[in-house]
Write a protein that binds this DNA or RNA. Structure first.
Lengths: 220, 220
DNA sequence: TTAAAGTTTGACCAGATGGTCAGACTAAAT
DNA sequence: ATTTAGTCTGACCATCTGGTCAAACTTTAA
């Protein structure tokens, strides 16, 4: 039932059930839409018990955000080790992000609704997560890119700008899918839409776009 | 005070004030976070009056979503007329989207929270908007791209995939800015962050990324 | 056996929240 | 002057919501 794999051997059976229910509820409804009663129902327990194990809604929410972010920053973005050349690295990164978010669009949307609330929770948790990692994921990626530039494998680009563009391109479809489908229905593309095939095309298209560009010849 | 320019000469003074307040409230708080009392306060009117002019919260919400989407689809995405070559078209599109969302990140985030609720409202409104336009914006863009491909200006790409990547790359920073700043603070890039300058770099970087790619030579 | 600690329950609460309504007030039409 | 239609207000309401609490029940420790 859980949207992705987390697990905490330190937690008892009831706590696990509650947290699982809370994650489902928060990810589906967001902070403002989530209801403690609904979390209790999902867990098959009384509401008072939810309060007994986790003092407040806020605490459950933080636990949820923590796990979601940890999943995203390690499982999704962290699949970049061991790739020798930049092409492989890029392909593997795109596959990982498109697959994860295509499989579960609610997760990036959940993070967005949190950002829409100001993102204080997400930032404070991010702070903690980054503190825990010896070498943060983003640094790993930046080094990857810097090395490829040195080796002349790719042209010199600002790693941050590159990552921002890439991540946006990978995430956007999953988040905006309802809109895109509506337009597609209306304007005739996307007839007989095969989602899985589309995601495969998407990976290929993003790779080609970012690796080869659309047509300009480099000026140097 | 209004986040962007809309206006409806058919609406009276009070109605305009209420709708303005409602848009501010909904865009800041989302559907679940918005409060009718808060809308009334923003407008400087009694809550009963808000209900008098607009029957329900739902109706005000739909009016808000309608205007936000119309703004986004015409003002932001529609600035593509009169560009002769693809390079100009691409630059102008990127500038328009990065500027609009950089100036007001809440708007794309608002649409995302709506999508997070399932996007039924956004889709039904999108349906109406598309019905009203003689030639929908996306079609205009698709034709633009198709023509550039014919002329050999750019290599053949799937227009939909291209637009998705581009839009994602343009929107992502504005939406995820809090996260990016947190990481930047932590990992040492983005010291003494000058937002406006960064947005300018962003436009340039996105254009170069999409036009020139990152380094691969095209296989044909 | 008994005390202490941990668990579970249902009743309860204070404060929101969207929405209604009778009636007062006001301006235009007759 | 009187009717009529539109505008405005404050009181009110049913429902929901996160959270509390005393008391009952269960497990563990002494």
């Amino acid at each position: 039932m859980a949207l992705f794999d987390w697990k905490d051997s330190r937690l008892g059976e009831k706590e696990t059930k509650i947290l699982e229910a809370a994650m489902d509820e928060f990810i589906a409804e967001g902070w403002n839409g989530a209801r403690m009663q609904s979390i209790a129902d999902r867990a098959g327990l009384k509401k008072s018990l939810v309060h007994y194990y986790f003092r407040s809604k806020e605490k459950l929410y933080r636990e949820t955000v923590w796990r979601v972010m940890e999943y995203f920053f390690t499982t999704v973005l962290g699949q970049t080790e061991g790739k020798e050349n930049f092409e492989d690295f890029l392909r593997s990164f795109i596959n990982s992000v498109v697959d994860a978010t295509g499989l579960n669009p609610r997760i990036p949307l959940f993070l967005m609704q949190e950002l829409s609330r100001g993102g204080e929770v997400v930032c404070s948790i991010l702070h903690d997560i980054l503190s825990l990692q010896e070498i943060p994921v983003t640094t790993v990626m930046r080094i990857h890119i810097a090395r490829a530039i040195e080796k002349g494998e790719i042209r010199p680009v600002d790693p941050i700008q590159f990552i921002l563009s890439l991540l946006g391109a990978c995430l956007y479809f999953a988040m905006a899918e309802p809109i895109i489908r509506e337009i597609g229905k209306r304007e005739g593309f996307l007839d007989q839409f095969d989602r899985q095939a589309f995601l495969e095309q998407r990976k290929e298209a993003v790779f080609n776009q970012f690796y080869y560009g659309i047509g300009g010849k480099r000026s140097e």
